[in-house]
């Protein structure tokens, strides 16, 4: 046989093998695992990802299905090993800090929060807040308080304020809040120190029984820093003559501009 024909047959064989092998690999999995019941998430399908790229070659599993694949992602799987296949591709800016993050250090696996096979949703499985609640019970309990952010309403997610992958990005403590509460950003002519430092000094962002997510009620909240001098400050039921002005909005009956004032007469945050 001429040399060109030999080479051509070899090339053809290799080509067939190249085309058949991933399909063969996929076909081997699909003999038992119905693709319709566990479609890959949105982006993964368009990338043409094969099962073995995450689960490993799994030759033993193919021979005896009772043997687990090389890589599984069941609950309780060691985080580092279970996350390795994901991090092989997902090395972008969002996951840059993952190994040094609190979740990474605590051995949380990607599959603890992200579900890649979801028949109902064809996206990579943006984790709902319920996923966070399964570990962060204390914060989850506060989400049930009367005054909260709209997480339970489905209009916000924990990841709108927190970075589960560890990348806090450009955010200062107050920056997270002013992304939505833009009017509190200022800068104001007269600034209130704790407002420029950290909103959580006065507010409990997960949930409160007090209006505006305060962590204490006025006047006591204000009196944790401010002397009650030259001022109505005694509660109306206190002996010695209380002050009715402490009812209603309390200190904010007059000091409305507690987040800062841009008025020339606003040094006391009344303007």
């Amino acid at each position: 046989m001429p040399r060109t024909m030999t080479t051509g047959l070899l090339m053809l064989s290799l080509l067939c093998l190249t085309l058949l092998l991933p399909e063969t690999a996929l076909a081997a999995c699909l003999k038992c695992h119905d693709e319709q019941e566990a479609p890959l998430a949105f982006q993964h399908r368009t990338q043409g990802l094969a099962c073995t790229q995450c689960h490993g070659v799994s030759a033993a599993h193919e021979d005896k299905p009772r043997v687990s694949p090389d890589q599984t992602f069941r609950a309780g799987a060691a985080g580092e090993a279970a996350s390795a296949p994901c991090l092989h591709c997902h090395q972008d800016a969002e996951r840059r800090f993952w190994p040094t993050s609190d979740h990474g250090q605590a051995d949380v696996a990607c599959s603890s929060c992200h579900a890649i096979h979801q028949p109902e949703r064809n996206d990579p499985g943006e984790p709902a807040s319920t996923k966070c609640e399964s570990c962060h019970a204390a914060e989850a309990a506060r989400l049930r308080y009367p005054v909260t952010h709209p997480l339970q309403a489905g209009s916000m997610a924990c990841s709108d304020c927190h970075s589960p992958h560890g990348n806090e990005g450009s955010l200062l403590p107050t920056d997270k809040c002013v992304r939505c509460h833009q009017d509190k950003n200022g800068p104001f002519l007269f600034e209130h120190e704790p407002v420029t430092e950290d909103c959580a000094l006065c507010h409990e962002p997960h949930g409160s029984t007090l209006p505006a997510l305060l962590n204490n009620r006025p006047p006591f909240l204000c009196q944790s820093c401010h002397m009650a001098a030259s001022h109505p400050s005694r509660m109306p039921v206190a002996a010695g003559g209380g002050d009715l002005n402490m009812t209603g909005k309390s200190c904010l009956n007059c000091h409305q501009q507690v987040h800062g004032s841009n008025h020339p007469s606003g040094a006391r945050f009344t303007r």
Binding site: A93, N167, G169, D183, N185, G186, Q256, N262, G266
Partner: peptide, 16 residues
């Protein structure tokens, strides 16, 4: 008269 939250413009640069 009380002054409300002022208008502002913010520019931000980030590198990582």
């Amino acid at each position: 008269t009380l002054a409300t939250a002022p208008d502002y413009d913010q520019y931000q640069w980030l590198a990582g």
